[in-house]
Each structure stands twice: as structure tokens, then as C-alpha cells.
Design a protein around this nucleic acid. Structure first.
Lengths: 221, 221
DNA sequence: CGTACGTTTGATCTTTCTCAATAATGGTGG
DNA sequence: CCACCATTATTGAGAAAGATCAAACGTACG
């Protein structure tokens, strides 16, 4: 399958899609990180997903009309834009690809369900631990995990908007997780000192990510 | 398209899928209501979606492996089971159907994103108002809205589990919404006394539901 | 070297939870 | 039809997690 595409390099803070847009192409993150976001009438922001390299950012907009949320870059990114029509065409001519897209979308929905649980029914400590675990496992699946840690590409305020907390409280929880020996921080770099305990603290199970591979994080501990 | 199916009638509380299952068929709700649910390690429950008549309940399980959540009935239901293979086959032979399923799944994801916002960044009053609005508009779309109200098929405890609150607090908020003249309750029946104000209170906009039709609720007020 | 942004910390305040008890409501068997 | 039982709804009082406000401290970067 040879899809037409165009490469772009964008700076942190750029929008890939804005709520209300009617985008003409589907963007794939080649390198860098982004997040899906919505702002309430009151003006507070909620982040509903972190996009990592390899993620298709707006399948939504290929098959639906007006975008229901925004996607903003966390870091400098290289992205590939695929025209909307090309993708729609591909789904119709190659049903196998259609199935693959259904699968991608279903996994995304599964992750969203877990986010609802995280934000709705876990306390602050578990929420933070959970999001760290999720991020680590997803990165690992893409081969982006350095030894037992990673570079968290977001500020504590963004972490707060992803967990439904305030940045002040996120800070306190991070410090507490560190004090308890679950993680280790050097600037934005998170190292897992006790992966097992962090998973427990976050009530984390990787089932909902639907990643078939072996859990090497678990193996090395 | 003539899909093979089997009809069943089930009682409230029955499970259509359990987390961890590997279901062999996809269920469609013909009549009655259900919800998607997950239970945390601490034992608290979060409801992530309400299924209404006409909803396909586990597309998830058609294309993914082990189920990541449970689906339980709110009311007595009539359901149709379609074999997993039949549906997978259909997607491959009829790409148009594949596109339609992608679309369904994307809308479901959009609703989930809004739930994350609701539970993560709105206060109790707005959460309740929002979920009532969402339910009303979805029912309206299926032609299930009686004049300007509907029969809420869930207890206040279930409403609490859907909004990340406690049943006690849900009760207080409902009473306050009623006291302020936004809604009217007779047993489980909710009547919208001031649809405009309820939408405002819930920070509700129907965009994320991706329903093309006109908003008749708005027209009649 | 200064400015902007992000992090850290402390003190106080609010929303929502918890615990507990009472009142409706609906369904059931006699 | 009625008494009884199990849910569900309602209400009050006190407790707690997390928010808010405010300030100080780092660190990167132009």
C-alpha cells in the first residue's frame, strides 16, 4: 500500500487539530509526543490521551465530520499527513486494512474506558501511578523505553490535566511516590525503582492495552 | 446483508460480557438498557457507558481478544447475538459495512472522551446535568424520548458510579437541580422543565455525539 | 544577566465523602 | 388484599482529600 503523504516538522504547542475543525487529512506522529484535549465551559482543560510516535492522530476526522476535540504537540514532532480521501479509499479497497483500523480504534476506546475509571474512581496517588505505568508500557511496546525509565514529555500541570487534579497536588504525589521508593526523578526523567509496587499503587493491569507481546518490564524485575 | 443471529430475553443484572471473557458473538441490544463497567482493585465500580436500544454491545470482542470490561443489563432486555466469525467475514466482504463499523466505534470513542472530561473536570452538579442531557439526546435520536422527559433506567447509586460520585451526593444534586426548576422527578421519570438551563448547567454541547439530525429538543423550547 | 516558565512548599478553604439513621417504594408470599 | 422484606431514596453531622491562594525557588534560554 503506497499512501500519498506529506512530512512536516512542528514545534511544541502547535495544534494538529482543533475542536470544530473539519480536517482534510489524517496525521501520523512519526517522532515526538502530543495529547488530545478538551476545554470545558469553565475554562479548565482535560487531557484524554497521550499520543506517542507511531500513533495515528485523527482517524476520527477521516470518518466523522467536525472534530470533537483538539490535538496539541507536547514536543517538537515530525508528522506525516495522509489525505482523507486516500485513507477512505484504502479502507474500501483493502478490507484487511479496514479491519486493522477497526482494531486500532477499539484499542483506543479501551484505553479511554480505563481513563474514565482512573479519573472517576481512583485517588490521586493511584491516578498518577497508573498513568506512569500506562505510559511506560505503551512506550515499551514501541521500543521507546530506556532501561527502566523514560523522559516524561509533559509538565506537572499537563499531568494534572490528564488526571483531573491540580498541578500542586500532582507535585505532592510525585514527591510522595519518590519518597516511598517507587520512582526516581531527575528533572523530567522518571526511573522505576520498584515497578511492581508502582503497578500495585496504580491498580494497573496491562490487559486493557491489548498488547499481545510479552511484558519485559515485568520480566526484568 | 442477512446476518445469522439468535434472539434472547434476559433479566436485569445479567451479564452480556464479563471482563476477562473471550466472547464468541457480538450482541446487539434490541430493547432495554445496559451499561459498561469496570471494578477497581479497591472494589469501587465505574460505569463508562450506557447502552440503549440499537447499540452494538461488543464490537470490542469481535476484533480484540479478551474483554477489558463487563457489560451488565439495567433492565429486562431483548438481545440479538451475532456470531463473531459472521461479523468478521462481513467486514471483509462488504467494505462499506467496515466503514460503518469504524464510524460507530469512533463515535463511541468520542463519547468516552467526553466522559473523561465530565468526570475529570466538572463539578458534581455539572456532571449530573451533563449525563442527563447526553442520555436525553441519545434517546431522542432513537425516537425514545417521551414529550420532554424519559424514564431513567438506573438507580442513584448507578448514576453515582457513572459520574464518579457517591449516591448520597447524587441525591443532593438531583434535589438541587429540581429545586432550581431545571428538572422534575416523579419516581425515576425525569422531565426537563428547563432544557436550556440544564444544558448550561451541564456544559453540554451535542457536537461530540456526532448525530447529524436536527435537535428537536431545542426546537420545542 | 534577566526573564519566563516550571517546580516546590505552606496555610487555609471547599467540595465531596463517610458513616449512620430514617423513610419510601415495590415486590412477594400467604 | 395485606404484612413483610429488600431495595432505593433521603437526610444530617463530621471527616478528609484535594483545591485554592500565595510565595519562593530553580533552571533554561535568549
Amino acid at each position: 500500500m503506497e499512501l500519498p503523504y506529506r512530512l512536516r516538522r512542528l514545534d511544541p504547542g502547535s495544534y494538529l487539530v482543533r475542536e470544530g475543525d473539519l480536517p482534510s487529512h489524517c496525521t501520523v506522529l512519526v517522532t515526538g509526543y502530543a495529547y488530545r484535549q478538551k476545554v470545558t465551559g469553565e475554562g479548565s482543560r482535560q487531557i484524554m490521551a497521550i499520543c506517542i510516535p507511531g500513533d495515528a492522530v485523527d482517524l476520527q476526522n477521516m470518518f466523522l465530520d467536525v472534530s470533537d476535540h483538539s490535538v496539541q504537540l507536547l514536543t517538537q514532532c515530525k508528522v506525516a499527513d495522509v489525505p482523507r480521501e486516500a485513507l477512505q479509499e484504502l479502507v474500501l479497497t483493502r478490507p484487511t486494512i479496514g479491519s486493522a483500523i477497526i482494531e486500532l480504534t477499539l484499542v483506543e476506546a479501551s484505553i479511554l474506558r480505563e481513563w474514565v475509571v482512573n479519573v472517576g474512581r481512583r485517588d490521586a496517588r493511584a491516578r498518577i501511578a497508573h498513568i506512569l505505568c500506562e505510559f511506560a508500557v505503551r512506550l515499551e511496546d514501541r521500543g521507546l523505553l530506556t532501561d527502566h525509565g523514560f523522559e516524561l514529555p509533559m509538565t506537572q500541570e499537563q499531568l494534572a490535566d490528564a488526571t483531573g487534579l491540580t498541578s500542586v497536588h500532582v507535585n505532592r504525589v510525585l514527591k510522595s511516590l519518590e519518597a516511598d521508593g517507587l520512582i526516581n526523578r531527575r528533572r523530567r526523567h522518571i526511573h522505576f525503582d520498584n515497578w511492581r509496587a508502582l503497578q500495585d499503587a496504580g491498580d494497573f493491569s496491562r490487559r486493557y492495552l491489548h498488547i499481545p507481546d510479552q511484558d519485559t518490564l515485568a520480566q526484568t524485575y
